[in-house]
Design a protein around this nucleic acid. Structure first.
Ligand SMILES: [Mn+2]
Ligand SMILES: [Mn+2]
Ligand SMILES: [Mn+2]
Ligand SMILES: [Mn+2]
Lengths: 217, 217
DNA sequence: CTAAAAATTTAGACTGGCCTAAATTTTTAT
DNA sequence: ATAAAAATTTAGGCCAGTCTAAATTTTTAG
């Protein structure tokens, strides 16, 4: 059985490993967990002891199979709760992350199973992130960043890479909602900003910063 | 802001204070929290420091107004989550307590408000316990124990005092469900056991031990 | 009313998770 | 190739919450 803290480290290691390639560094973990490198080292020793990570001093860290299994379980819970909060309780997608950070630690297999089926076995969370299966698989999505699309393309908005309230509110404001299609009218050569037409016909300006954090199909 | 542990102590003090009269003892707390008396003393000093309890060495403990407010908030969350688990996820009433013990600590006013309205502002939890109001009031119920009722009376089963899986399963087995009415056929003079007729017509034996833990109207 | 029993508190110690400062290892740049 | 910089680990310590053993206070019984 893991503590909240251990669960958070596992989840964070998983996420960092899948953003960059190769081993996850102590400093990167310290930044995300908002602690100091020395504290991370302490925890890494403990997780290695429990065989949840592969860890060689100074060489970075990688999840073991068991560690990954646990990480996916926690991510699954997080995303299912986010679906619940949005679909059933009517929260908006920018309000749910912090609450799900707490709910994800409630430990009950039965609870997750029932929640999943109550929600209709959703495949994606409100931010378009795939929900790991109960068998412990992270579904593959073939998305690319909007910033990599070209003029003239019509692309469907599928997920966000950035989950901050500010970013999500900005998307709402810009009429960019997941599942909707936008047509790329123009890409500015200088700042790589986009002008796109949304499904409702609005012509919207999308900065490169935003386009980099929007996944499309 | 209180830790999980502090919240559990406040809730426990509240519950004990409303089962017995007067101050709550260190030993009673140690038993319920499954810790040792010495640990309880440490925590009482901390809670007194935070002005959440009135505490004089060797004299037992009582919640302050603020302490009671917090205790009721936690109990409210616990009971709302129990309703959710039973009504929405289809758990049975003997499975929900432990899960609610964890869910009750998720801290979000907004979450509780939305959950409450999603559930239709329920007045009672699956065990018949009243749900404290958002204003911080514990609704009064005028229930008495089934063991205090008399032969010939028809009484409505309203709540249970004991929440163990064993007890609740036994009630299911005995066809004794909350909201149903039973008619008292006979009270055994020797062991104070009851013979009652349930709503479905079954004739059921109710031991004194069980009758003491069933509240009726 | 007093002595034994029971309840409670204090003393001292441990673990988990965190910190700062110092030491060590690895990486980078000349 | 080597020195400076960056990253990481180690040393030593703090706090919350727990424990056991010992001391103290309150309660109970004779
Ligand atoms: Mn999230
Ligand atoms: Mn999400
Ligand atoms: Mn309960
Ligand atoms: Mn209950």
């Amino acid at each position: 059985m893991q503590s909240f803290t251990e669960e958070n480290y596992l989840k964070t290691i998983y996420n960092l490993a899948n953003r960059q390639q190769g081993e996850v560094s102590t400093n990167a973990l310290a930044e995300v967990t908002a602690t100091k490198a020395a504290s991370v080292t302490d925890m890494l020793r403990k997780l290695a002891e429990k065989q949840l990570i592969h860890y060689k001093k100074y060489q970075g860290v990688r999840l073991t199979e068991e560690g990954e299994r646990l990480a996916l379980q926690i991510i699954r819970r997080h995303r299912l709760w986010e679906v619940f909060l949005v679909e059933k309780l009517g929260f908006s997608w920018d309000q749910v992350h912090d609450i799900a950070e707490e709910l994800e630690h409630v430990r009950s297999e039965e609870l997750v199973t029932r929640l999943d089926s109550y929600l209709g076995n959703p495949q994606f969370d409100p931010h378009g992130d795939p929900i790991p299966t109960s068998a412990g698989q992270m579904p593959e999505t073939g998305y690319r960043k909007l910033s990599e699309a070209e003029v003239g393309e019509g692309v469907c908005l599928m997920a966000v890479l950035e989950h901050s309230t500010g970013f999500l509110r900005h998307l709402d404001y810009s009429d960019l909602s997941l599942g909707s299609t936008v047509i790329i009218q123009e890409i500015n050569a200088f700042d790589k900003s986009f002008r796109v037409q949304t499904e409702t016909g609005r012509m919207v300006f999308v900065s490169h910063e935003v386009a980099k954090n929007l996944l499309v199909n």
